[in-house]
Design a protein around this nucleic acid. Sequence first.
DNA 1: CGTCGCGTTGACATTTTTCAAAGTGGGTGG
DNA 2: CCACCCACTTTGAAAAATGTCAACGCGACG
Lengths: 245, 245
Amino acid sequence: MRKSALVQRLEQYATLSAGERDALDWAERRETRVPAGERLLGRGENSDTLYVVQLGWFHAAIRLPTGARQILRFHFPGDLMGTSSIAWAQAVHDFTAVSDAIVSELSKVNLGRIFREQPRLAGLLYAMSAAENVALSDRLTSVGRMDSLQRLSTLILDVLARLRVTAGGVIDSFDFPLTQTDIGDTVGLTKVHVSRTLGKMEDLGLIQRNGKRVRVLDEARMIADTGFVDRYKEIESSWLAPPPT
Amino acid sequence: MRKSALVQRLEQYATLSAGERDALDWAERRETRVPAGERLLGRGENSDTLYVVQLGWFHAAIRLPTGARQILRFHFPGDLMGTSSIAWAQAVHDFTAVSDAIVSELSKVNLGRIFREQPRLAGLLYAMSAAENVALSDRLTSVGRMDSLQRLSTLILDVLARLRVTAGGVIDSFDFPLTQTDIGDTVGLTKVHVSRTLGKMEDLGLIQRNGKRVRVLDEARMIADTGFVDRYKEIESSWLAPPPT
DNA sequence: CGTCGCGTTGACATTTTTCAAAGTGGGTGG
DNA sequence: CCACCCACTTTGAAAAATGTCAACGCGACG
C-alpha cells in the first residue's frame, strides 16, 4: 500500500514512530477517485467522516442564499479535509475537486481513537488546525484590506508557497486549474475584474500567463507590495512530548 | 478559587470528569488584569503560552506594512487565545483588550501534557479550534461577498449570538465597546462608511443606537438578508469516547 | 458545423473611499 | 464649575475602485 499523504505531511513536521504510522494507516479507509469538478460533500449532508487528500486539489466553499459563493480554502495532498465540520453533525462547507483527485476516508470515530492512543499525533493535528486558522486569517486580511492587485498577488504567492512544500524545490510556475470565476470567488472580486487585473499584472511584468499556466516573474515585488509571509515552511511541535515507544 | 471560564465553556459541550477539571485547573496559571486598550501580546513576540479569557473582550488583529489593520476575531470569556500561534515560536497576531479584562496563562507545555493525559479534553479543544475556523470562514464570506449593510448585520448578529451563549437567555441589546474604526477594520470598510451604514440601518429600523449600546430591532429581517447561521448553540463531541474514570 | 464555457473588452452604474470640515461628548486641568 | 481638548462620529462633495451588462472572440468538444 502506498504511504498515505497525511503520513508524509506529518513527517515533514516531526519524525513519526512506527506506532504512530500504523495508527494512521489503520484509521484511513476506502480510497476514492473524484473527477475534476465533482462535489465530494455538500453542505448539510451528514458528515461522520473526514477526508485525506491523497492526490489533486479541492476547494472548500460556502454558498449564500443569493447564489453568491465564497471559496474559503484550497486543499492539497496531505491535507485533512472536513475538520471544519467536526464540531457539527452536518457538513458546514462544500468540498469540490478542482482537478482529478483521490481521497481516503478517516472517520470521526477513528480520529477519536487516535486522540486516545496517539497523543502526539493529536497534538500535530491540533497544530495543523491552528495553521489552517492562520491561513484563513491571512486570506481575510487580504480580502478585507487590500485592492484587487494585491489580493491576486497574495493568492498566487500562497498557492506557490504551498506547492513548494510538496514539490521539494523552488518553483516559479505552476498550473492554475481555476476559472476566473473561481478566482474571483476566492478573493472577493468579479470574474470581469479578475480578468482585467490579471491583465494588468502581466503588463506590469509581475506574472506571465500561458493558458492555465502561471509564471511568477517578479516575486520580490509582489511580496514587497503585499507583505506576504510564507507560513508553510515549518510548524512548531516542540511543546509536544516524544511519542510513546 | 473561581472556576475557570475555560472549564465552564467546555462543560457546555460535555460533562467533564473530576480528573479533567483538575487537569485544567492545574494547567492554568497566573491570572492577570489587562486594562481596556492594552495589548497583551504583539506579533513577533515569543509565545510559549496561550491565554484563557476569564473576563472581558479581546480582539486578534494583523497589521499590514501599510499601516492598515484587519481585526480577525473577538475573544470572549472561555475562549482559548493564541491557538493560532501554536504552530510557530512567535505570535502571529496581536491581541488587544477591547474592554477591561482578565486572562490566565496556559503554557504550551502544559497543553501538551493535557493532550497526553486527557485525550477527550484534547478532542474538545480540537473541536473548538475547528469551530474557530468556521467562524473565520463566515467572516471571510461576509467580507468577500456582501455589501456594507450585510457585513455590519452579520457582525452584530454574530456578537449577539456569542453573548447569548454566556448570558444564558435571549438578549436583544448589548454594549458594543468598539469604535467605528475598529468595526471597519473587522468587516473591511472605512470608518466613514461604517458611520453612514449604521445610520442607514437605523433609518431602516433594523437597529437602534444609544451611545455604545446597540439594540437589534428586526433580527428576522437581518437574518433573512444575510443568511446568518448561529453556530454557537452546540458543538458535537459524540465522536469522542467518555473520559477515563 | 454549431454549441458551450470561458476569457476579454467597452461603456456605464454603483459602491466605497478619500479628503475635509464641523458636530458631539466625556474627561481634565485651571 | 467652566473651558478646553481630544477622540470619536457625522456630513458633504468629489474621486477611485469595483460591479454590471452586453457583446465578441476563442478553443474544446460533440
